[in-house]
Design a protein around this nucleic acid. Sequence first.
RNA 1: GGGCCCGUUGCCUAGUCUGGAUAGGGCGCUAGCCUUCUAAGUUAGAGGUCGCCGGUUCGAAUCCGGCCGGGCCCGCCA
Length: 636
Amino acid sequence: MRGTSSNPWKSVIDFIVEIIAEKTELDRMQIIESLEVPPDPNLGDLATTVSFQLAKIEKKNPALIANKIVEYLEQAAEKEGFIERIESKGPYINIFLNRGALAKFVISCVSELDTDYGKSDSYKGLRALLEYPAVNPSKPWHIGHTRNAVIGDTLGNILEHVGYDVIRLDYINDLGLQIAQITWKLMMDGEPENIEEKYDHFLGKIYVEVQEAFEKFESIEKEIREVSRKLEDLSSSESKHSLKMVTKCVKAQYQTAYRLGIYHDYQVWESAIAHSGLLEIAREKMMECENVVKLEEGEKAGCIVAKLDSIDDFKDMKDPNKVLFRSDGTRTYTGADIALQMWKFGIYPDPFFYQIFEKQPNGEEILRTALEGKKNGIGKVDLVFNVIGTAQAHPQKLVYSILDLLGYEEESQNSHHIAYEFVGLEETDFSGRKGTWIGYTCDEVLDKAKELAYEEVAKRNPDWGEEQNDQVAEQVAVGALRYFMLNASPDRKITFRWEDALDFNGDAAPYLQYSYARATRILEKIDAQENQEGNLSLLSAPQEFELVKAIAKLPEEILEVARGMRKNVWGTGFSSNRITSYSYNLATLFSRFYDSCPVLKAEPGLMAARLELVKSFRTTISNCLSLLGIPVIERM
RNA sequence: GGGCCCGUUGCCUAGUCUGGAUAGGGCGCUAGCCUUCUAAGUUAGAGGUCGCCGGUUCGAAUCCGGCCGGGCCCGCCA
């Protein structure tokens, strides 16, 4: 193998497949599928189970076949420097790579690509629109919302890494009943002069109070419903009050998002949807379909419904006529969701105007939909990913199926529900209404994590000042929380326990950050002039070799996650935990290397080679951390 | 009634799509390792009927069927 590759492990695999293909009758796909990593590195670096497949064809003992093939393969492999040896063990054919040659190849790939190492252009030219976390603008983010936001943000990073152009969208429901409830309360009581709390926390608590009254007293419910109706009228005082309140709330919520390194490109506001004419345009489009009709009689007389009895998945519904627009003409959630999904794909002309909501700390402006402003829409997108809890699997499926029913087959296929299970407590779930989230907001969890991290940082770095302690503690806290959310497979419920979320040892973000800091420290201690050419073929210790192999696999690992995003009956799978476990494993291998292979005390030639390896590791783990949105810490 | 997700050691969990060698980790527990690049680390050890039963297969945590337990979903609600 000559030169460098953006996917070194894949290059090694291709090389081996080529050799096997020359010596057997099997096609390349079969060979690729037969390749696996043996359970124990002592058995080899790669193995092939082609003997099982050949045994079926030739009707012979697989072990005998393996024995025979190995002889041929050894001859072929000898010509190139990449393979050390090939041996059979029973039916398995085990391949040992040349450690020095692989180290040389992998390290040159990483050093060439640097911060781009891990990226690929496999999906170049495709545009993906992601929606997350769409938290109601009436309360602070709790840890359930945090899971949504972190999954969405990380998914965006991964899609960007494999070549997608990614648009990050947030949805602001400023017309919901929850907003009416708070508006009612604030207009009655007047807004307090000095609110000491963060504004979203303040609203959240009011909301819990109002909700109680709302459920208890019919008269209050009636008043609030009236406020809700008035919110639809943009000239009403209720609407004007609510707009100020919601804007303030979203800005407060975004302070939390920014702490986590989460940014967006656009916001879609429900009030803009309601008054832009979007719903009317969408409704007309929908009614062009013969399966969307206005019912004349029966319980749903006057409603515009989608007839779903022809679709297998929905024929067991109580009534397969799904209401999209009520008899009074207003849209249902499903109706609005379909209209919005159509907008995302640009099925009809964009009716929105756009205004700057605010400038984010990353320097980028976030645009919100509005009724006046500039006409800079999102343009054509190929795929839409909605990050929504798994409880909404059925409604999401409805939206995509109806899209298909309307004739937008491709758009339906390209609609993805990224489903994740909820975060709960041992005894209860998080409920906005009951206020069970109090004490478990994202801000509180981050603050508590930071407090603990601060103690640790101060203990380890007695010479640091308060500012440096504080900064690192914040980075540790953010990393720990993001990792905690990503390391759980999205289809698994998270039971939130402080001792788990705040455990900074073992399988957690600080471990990764620490490995980076250690690598950085080694490199810092070397003066530039000592930078001599290292003989990379000296890197043959098992700890060095295992680290090299792990580094080599990053690009393929990211691609595997992207390829694994297939549609299922419940949504589209997204294995965020694969990236965390890859990164954890990489850091573990570095820790072992660190413990058993001294760098600065090694012989000059070996030292230079190990320095190169440390550099490669540092780049790779750094790229993993930025993919996961975990802050990189130089010293901790 | 119908559909979906989960069940792996004291606790948390990877692996299940695409079957393959002794089922990986982490927490906790036990015993080592800092005069050596940051011990948020590392080495070793104890701990498992992969929910249960059956089937397919040379081979099943993984595929198929049937159960059991936990959660979620099937509104002109929000």
